[in-house]
Design a protein around this nucleic acid. Structure first.
Length: 861
RNA sequence: GCGGAAGUGGUGAAAUGGCAAACACACUAGCCUUAGGAGCUAGCGCCCAAAAGGCUUGCGGGUUCAAGUCCCGCCUUCCGCACCA
């Protein structure tokens, strides 16, 4: 046996050796094509942005996915485990400004660097299916999809108020505004600007996206709830209040493009003007004592045209609301309002009530107008108190004996009072009746509205997918023909941060001929939001080299839906709702059959250090490269799994990595000591259990128990921290029996089985060391595809077990009994125990509860 | 305000309703030595000098033979949403 000193565990040497060997086999991690006899398993981790440096969050995310992928391979599945790069985005432009490096060069350099890091750690990706979203062979399909959406009316252009980040000099989606600030610039207030923008009609799918969440049982409840709230479905009623006819001067045409969710003003020829409100509590409408308009409501402009005083006051409200929105505390500002001096008529009661403008009414939600019912709504109550607007009770408790509750009374299980012919009806019944009346009489009806808005995808930046549209003076907006795709992003370009889109300053790009009339025309210079790229990238993995379509339908059909998707919870809304939308669009284009991209989603916790998220500004960043250099890739990734369950935040402690590294060294030495003995017998001769010694049987029992524990965790619980702990326990048991492993007491066949199994159990977590051990022990074939060990329940079972004996629920003694003991035997053993006897002396045992194999409890008086 | 998750030793944590603290880290004492970021042995929740014993899973109730685990109420922390009509 070689001197142990020369056999020091040297992770760098082992890992480099295997990395080279595995790199030489390009199909090592390749999935088999559709039609494979094996069941398919698609495991996917969210693709990173190529910043240039892998961080610990990546390492954790990919270590989880990698362990799962490796396990599934060993279980005999046909595994698809791909990786790619979310490579468009602003940082490349910033870097270009700072270092004068072209974005493409910078990005691809980062991709190469991070790929090296991933390969060094040994993640099992099939690099032949790598997807890089900034390359034309990928983004041309973004353009292709965009054109399909234009054809289907799912992509459209409109002028709208947009979120503008002055730092990015671009528009942000609603989803990218956090607390009134840019998601990438937490200090930068987002401004509101009016611009012509491209939108995708995600609201067409609002109902379905909401319904679909019900079926996603494999997704965390938290994510489903967040999406539910984001979609924000609300059932209610729209009601038109008639405007008391007054002199407004020339008819106002303010609202030329009606909002999808209902317009503020209807001008129906000779009919009277109306204000449409949305309410979820139409049953309280007899209690409406004012109508409140959002300050930006088109009708307000008409009212203020002749009233300079009102105009000033409204401007003040708008300003206040804007400032609050930018500060991110819209909910915190005090409620203010101004009476317009105009009146509206309640269509049910004919009552005339004043019209106000109020800063707590939002133009973006509902119709931008509400009926104010101070008796039965908290906000309206607060407002009415402040301005001495009448407060009226129109709902009473269902139980007539109940005391009259204080106002505002917002419960919905009451009955109507003071509500004309509707008095006496329950709230629910009244809502139904009032909706029917409104619909029949043409002044409203039932209505479902959503908080979700269409997805603004235009960006005035360079480093993104060019939107394939052409502006022709004669033909208007003309789509680029499919045959002209891709619209290539020009490479020679001067990046600036101001002055609009950099693309607009590239004449070669901008000036084209119109595909329709052949006349001079200009290209659209907006690029697409990068979330477009990540909305469908995982389909491309199934057919990454396809140059005639985004992917072949038969491949998507085979691999989808994704069996397990793994990533950070920060994508719970943005990426995960966009990709659910995109999947449905592709389904409706006939490209796929599934409606959801992934059946199971796992969101791992953050990696923190000293109680805070790792960040450069806090100076608590731990570099994966340093960890790998010091302790090896195996120790680094195994620690990432060992330190906490995957769904919880993980506090990075370098001492812990050192501990895992020492553990791996112990495994290494243990194997080195007994490798020769293990190698001395061939495979298949190792089933020596029947004749094995007591020590051997004990170790084999521990082995089977360990296999069972780990296998179970892979099947769903995913507490990989306890999997690693179980392996450690197993190794501790082997080490305690070190002398016997080396002696005749344990046969070579058993030693071989014990150690080969150890290597197999380690393979998902520490693949390099596992491969090395496998080779030293003379294991057959490639350990990566060796079958996962099976636990034999018979061999895993203990002969004798320890059972607690409780007296009145308190622990009194622990007895040893045979594992299969029945209740009577256990009871007898418990009563025979000295400690139990002492405690029960002179008292009566009233009852004995025996849980076979578990516990004995004596109820004693 | 609404929704979600969590609260256990010095630390990370473990525990199908059945012996709370597995597995590690840190620490303490000792051993070994080719002095290593190594290895080995022992100790390590709290109270008591020790033993015996008692106490202990944020707080208060409850269900149960038995509760860290289930139920009710509260507190704290973190996360998401929020004048959503």
């Amino acid at each position: 046996m070689p001197d142990e000193k020369e056999q020091r565990y040297d992770p760098a040497a082992i890992e480099t050796k295997w990395q080279e060997r595995w790199a030489a086999d390009p199909v090592l991690y390749a999935a088999e094509p559709a039609g494979s006899s094996k069941p398919k398993y698609y495991v996917l981790e969210m693709l990173p942005y190529p910043s240039g440096q892998l961080h610990m969050g990546h390492v954790r995310n990919y270590s989880i996915g990698d362990a799962l992928a490796r396990h599934m391979w060993m279980r005999g599945y046909n595994v698809l485990h791909p990786m790619g790069w979310d490579a468009f985005g602003l940082p490349a432009e910033n870097a270009a400004l700072k270092n004068n490096t072209p974005p493409r060069e910078w990005t691809l350099g980062n991709v190469a660097a991070m790929k090296r890091q991933m390969q060094r750690i040994g993640f099992s990706y099939d690099w032949r299916t790598e997807v890089t979203t900034c390359l034309p062979e990928y983004y041309r399909w973004n353009q292709w999809f965009f054109l399909r959406m234009v054809e289907k009316g799912l992509a459209y252009r409109k002028k709208s108020k947009v979120n503008w980040c002055p730092e990015c000099a671009t528009v942000l989606a609603n989803e990218q505004v956090v607390d009134g600030c840019c998601w990438r610039h937490e200090e930068t207030r987002v401004e509101q600007r009016d611009l012509e923008q491209w939108f995708l009609r995600i609201t067409n799918y609002a109902e379905e996206l909401l319904q679909g969440l019900e079926s996603l049982e494999g997704w965390p409840e938290k994510v489903r709830t967040m999406q539910r709230n984001w979609i924000g479905r609300s059932e209610g009623t729209e009601v038109d209040f008639f405007l008391e006819e007054i002199n407004l001067g020339p008819r106002d045409q303010g609202n030329k493009e009606p909002e999808k969710q209902g317009s503020g003003v209807r001008d129906q020829g000779s009919e009277r003007r109306r204000i449409r409100v949305f309410t979820t509590r139409v049953d309280t409408i007899f209690g409406a004592t004012s109508v409140q308009l959002a300050p930006e409501h088109p009708l307000v402009a008409a009212f203020t045209r002749k009233d300079a005083g009102l105009r000033t006051q409204v401007a003040g409200l708008i300003d206040e609301q804007r400032r609050a929105r930018e500060a991110g505390d819209v909910g915190a500002i005090e409620k203010h309002g101004v009476p317009t001096g105009q009146f509206a008529i309640n269509p049910y009661s004919g009552e005339t009530i004043p019209i106000w403008v109020a800063n707590y009414v939002l133009m973006e939600y509902g119709t931008g107008a509400i009926m104010s019912v101070p008796g039965h709504d908290e906000r309206d109550f607060e407002f009415a108190k402040k301005y001495a607007i009448p407060i009226r009770r129109v709902i009473a408790p269902a139980d007539p004996r109940a005391e009259e509750p204080e106002l505002p009374f917002t419960a919905e299980d009451g009955v109507l009072v003071n509500s004309g012919e509707y008095s006496g009806l329950s709230c629910a019944e009244a809502q139904k009746r009032l909706q029917e009346v409104a619909a029949r009489s043409g002044f409203g009806g039932a209505k479902v509205i959503f908080r979700l808005k269409d997805w603004g995808v235009s960006r005035q930046r360079y480093w993104g997918t060019p939107i394939p549209m052409i502006h022709c003076e004669r033909d208007g907006l003309v789509p680029v023909p499919d045959a002209h795709l891709p619209v290539i992003l020009p490479e020679k370009i001067e990046i600036t941060q101001t002055g609009g889109s950099p693309l607009a300053r590239v004449p070669d790009f901008v000036n084209v001929t119109c595909p329709r009339c052949g006349g001079p025309a200009k290209r659209e210079t907006d690029t697409m939001d990068t979330f477009v790229d990540s909305s469908w990238y995982f389909y491309r993995y199934t057919d990454a080299k396809n140059s005639s379509a985004p992917f072949g339908p038969e491949r998507a059909e085979y691999w989808f839906p994704i069996d397990q998707y793994i990533g950070g919870v920060e994508h719970a809304i943005l990426h995960l709702i966009y990709s659910r939308f995109w999947t449905r669009v592709m389904r409706d284009l006939g490209m796929i059959r599934n409606s959801e991209p992934a059946t199971r989603l796992f969101t791992q916790g953050m990696v923190i250090k000293n109680g805070a998220k790792m960040s450069k500004s806090k100076g608590n960043v731990v570099s994966p490269d340093e960890m790998v250099a010091q302790y090896g890739a195996d120790a680094t990734r195994m620690y990432a799994l060992f330190a906490a369950p995957p769904d919880r935040d993980l506090d990075w402690q370098e001492d812990g990595v050192a501990g895992v590294s020492r553990f791996l060294a112990r495994v290494w030495r243990l194997t080195a000591r007994h490798a020769a003995k293990a190698r001395s017998v061939a495979n298949g001769t190792n089933n020596a259990c029947a004749t094995a010694s007591a020590t051997a049987q004990k170790l084999l029992r521990k082995m089977h128990q360990t296999i069972a524990r780990i296998t179970l965790d892979f099947e769903g619980r995913w507490h990989f921290n306890t999997c690693v702990a179980a392996i450690m326990e197993y190794v501790n048991a082997l080490q305690e029996a070190d002398a016997q492993l080396g002696s005749d007491e344990i046969s070579a066949g058993v030693v071989r089985e014990l150690l080969l199994t150890l290597a197999l159990l380690l393979a998902p977590f520490a693949p390099y060391l596992a491969a090395e051990l496998w080779e030293q022990l003379g294991g057959e074939g490639n350990i990566l595809r060796a079958p996962w060990p099976k636990s034999d329940p018979g061999l895993a079972k203990e002969d004798e077990i320890e059972v607690p004996v409780q007296i009145n629920g308190k622990l009194a003694a622990v007895i040893r009994v045979a594992a299969e003991s029945d209740g009577k035997t256990m009871e007898a053993a418990a009563l025979a125990d000295e400690k139990v006897k002492a405690r029960t002396a002179g008292r009566t045992v009233v009852k004995v509860i025996v849980v076979p194999g578990r516990a004995v409890n004596l109820v004693v008086k």
